[in-house]
Design a protein around this nucleic acid. Structure first.
Length: 389
DNA sequence: TCTGGGGTCCTAGGACCC
DNA sequence: TCTGGGGTCCTAGGACCC
């Protein structure tokens, strides 16, 4: 499966992995392998994945009380007083249920801490003999298990940390678990200490059942083709600001600050330019016209003639709850605009996301991203529902 | 020709205050 | 040769996650 704009490989079947197609590899670099082996390639379709994600998550939430929806395809469940006697059997029943209701195969790892559960899950997924479920408990020879896993496979240890660890002779997870606390603190910060402590079976990364309040909302895209004209850039930034405003209203939030960034391609040899600038709004807001006009004002300020632009983005920060927002003394949110935005959202929900949009978004959409091999929105779009003939 | 997007948290360093 | 201490706040950059 490909990233946005059909740029990079972001998910692979086991068969594709076996052909040597790497994670995050640019598509054009492995095109030959793909074509000569008849590998099926799909553009990403996050609306569809989001729909299936919700189906799976709601099954978990119906079964269990303490569920953290961690990402689009992962959840943590904490068994507190409800711990079933036969954990493994219970996990297998959950797995079968999800498969039956959604057709999605999942793997389940169980352990004392999140970090160890991620390791258990990895084993469940990788070793066919476990059939999708693996439990690390008091009877498990955990040390022998950890010794066989490399540090870079631990949740919280990325590229850089793995290199640093390996350089210091720590290559497997058992060594990491037994590493010196002070040394870890010094070189890997408190995140490092948390990871190591969790490996020792002491939980210190809490379950987050209610998602923490958001700090920022961003919409940014690479363009399907290079953009040189100010007009196209303006249309793109206006469209991104529109999306951000929609998201703010969807989550019932106001933004205090708008940021815009734009840049050229980092990889080619053409002249490079990157700029980002932020502006505080007169008062926290989520109305499309306010967001769009501020974003365009920033764009005018940072735009430079003569570059081939490759991407742009709009970011809002200083988010607050729209219901309880602090407005400046004597200031009120404009009733007319509130009603207008409400009508706009209802019409777009009913008739399609871009039925009504600001004129500044333009109609050419020359810059929109490539998605040449999109999976149909089987369950999310009326025109793309599977047809039985 | 072609190299993703959206987040979070932590840290270091600078500016500023008394 | 000399060069306070303690604190806050902000920002940029790094690292990580999926």
């Amino acid at each position: 499966m490909l990233s946005n704009n059909d740029g990079c490989i972001v998910a692979r079947s086991n068969e594709a992995k076996a052909l040597g197609i790497g994670m995050a590899e640019p598509f054009f670099k492995v095109k030959e392998i793909i074509e000569s082996n008849n590998v099926q390639v799909f553009s990403s379709n996050y609306t569809l994945y989001g729909d299936f994600s919700q189906r799976v998550m709601s099954i978990l939430q119906e079964l269990e009380e303490h569920v953290e929806c961690y990402s689009i395809d992962e959840a943590f469940i904490e068994f507190r007083e409800s711990t079933p006697d036969d954990l493994e059997g219970y996990a297998r029943r959950i797995r079968a249920m999800i498969k039956q209701y959604t057709g999605i195969p999942v793997s389940i790892g169980i352990a004392e801490t999140k970090t160890l559960a991620k390791i258990a899950n990895r084993i469940a997924k990788k070793k066919a003999e476990h059939n999708g479920v693996f439990v690390i408990n008091a009877e498990t020879d955990t040390d022998a298990l950890l010794e066989k896993i490399e540090v870079e496979d631990v949740w919280g240890i990325g590229n850089k940390s793995a290199l640093k660890l390996q350089y210091n002779g720590i290559t497997n997870v058992l060594q990491l678990k037994n590493a010196d606390d002070l040394w870890i603190r010094k070189w890997f910060g408190i995140q490092g200490i948390r990871t190591v402590t969790e490996l020792r079976g002491v939980s210190c990364i809490a379950l987050e059942e209610a998602p923490p309040p958001r700090q920022s909302i961003m919409y940014s895209r690479s363009f399907g083709e290079r953009v040189t004209s100010y007009q196209y850039l303006e249309e793109a930034v206006s469209t991104f600001a529109t999306k951000v405003a929609e998201k703010l209203r969807k989550y019932g939030l106001l933004a205090a600050c708008v940021h815009v960034n734009l840049g050229t391609n980092r990889f080619n040899k053409l002249p490079k330019y990157y700029a980002a600038h932020a502006m505080e709004l007169p008062q926290p807001d989520n109305a499309t016209p306010v967001l769009v006009s501020s974003a365009l004002e920033i764009l005018r300020y940072i735009f430079r003639e003569g570059y081939e632009y490759q991407k742009a983005g709009v970011l809002v920060t200083g988010l607050s709850d729209a219901e309880t927002a602090q407005l400046k003394l004597f200031e009120q949110r404009d009733e007319k605009t509130l009603k207008l935005m409400d009508a706009l959202d209802r019409i777009n929900r009913r008739w399609g996301r871009t039925v009504l949009e600001p004129a500044s978004n333009g109609i050419t959409k020359a810059w929109t991203m490539r998605r040449d091999r999109k999976t149909p929105g089987y369950t999310t779009c009326w025109h793309e529902i599977p047809v039985v003939k």
